[in-house]
Nucleic acid binder design. Structure first.
Lengths: 127, 127
DNA sequence: TGAATATATGAGCATATGTTCATATTGTCA
DNA sequence: TGACAATATGAACATATGCTCATATATTCA
């Protein structure tokens, strides 16, 4: 009796993954959804760029003007290092590009979609 | 000598916030950028919704069809609980809405911007 | 060449975040 | 009403993430 109860409990906690209620819906969606896991991963990585306050403010700033690391740090009242780390992330995501002039590295937006994306975000938040 | 060296070191590490190189640019950007901190915060929160693989797949699924918690869990091969937690987050961000029919709760997309945003992400990643 | 400056980067730390587990809640049906 | 089923939720845990510090690299200029 105790064993049975234990097994029941265990089974319940394992298949908390319940039975599919609408098999047709699940199959339909499964077909139409992106099948490539790495695609979904890359897509999430892309959106992550905008999902942090610091990176977002950097992008919002670069939307207005090309800026160097020093200026961005001053603008946001933050460490060089923190800005540089975030710019590296944005750079790897191909969202910003850089040009070097002497010691100074100037960053600009590198993607036509960035502005459009920020605009959509504006609309949503302003509702 | 040792004290001086220490002080120098300390000063350096404190004002790693370097002098502004382009004061005009910084001032200009500062004026044109959103001044409301909570706005930027909300904007980042909005983008966070898309910045996690699980939430992203949920949104991609709901883009195709209304679904209940069970079906989403089955589709993604995940726990009820995990899905439910994420749906709560999406719900608080007003990105999904729900209707209850008996025991079953059906979720749909609640924002016209979601599809547009996903489309932009598609374009970027596919480049 | 040596000092100073702008930027980059690795390590460490503190916090944030996603998942799981256990349990609660709500609704159906015998 | 009682058993079951679908969903919700709080706590705990493991991992991810952003910032700081120290240091490295690269460039200018005296």
């Amino acid at each position: 009796m105790l064993i049975y109860s234990y097994l029941m409990k265990n089974t319940n906690s394992i298949d908390h993954i319940c039975k599919v209620i609408h098999k047709d819906v699940v199959n339909n969606v499964k077909q139409q959804m992106p099948h490539d896991d790495s695609f979904v991963y890359d897509l999430a990585e892309f959106f992550k760029a905008f999902a942090d306050g610091t990176r977002l403010r950097i992008l919002l700033a670069l939307r207005i003007s090309e800026m160097c690391v020093c200026d961005i740090a001053a603008l946001l009242g933050m460490n060089h290092s923190a800005i540089s780390h975030q710019l590296r992330i944005l750079s790897h995501l191909r969202l910003v590009k850089q040009r070097k002039y002497g010691k100074v590295v100037y960053y600009t937006l590198n993607d036509v979609h960035v502005k459009a994306l920020l605009d959509l975000g504006f609309e949503h938040v302003n509702e």
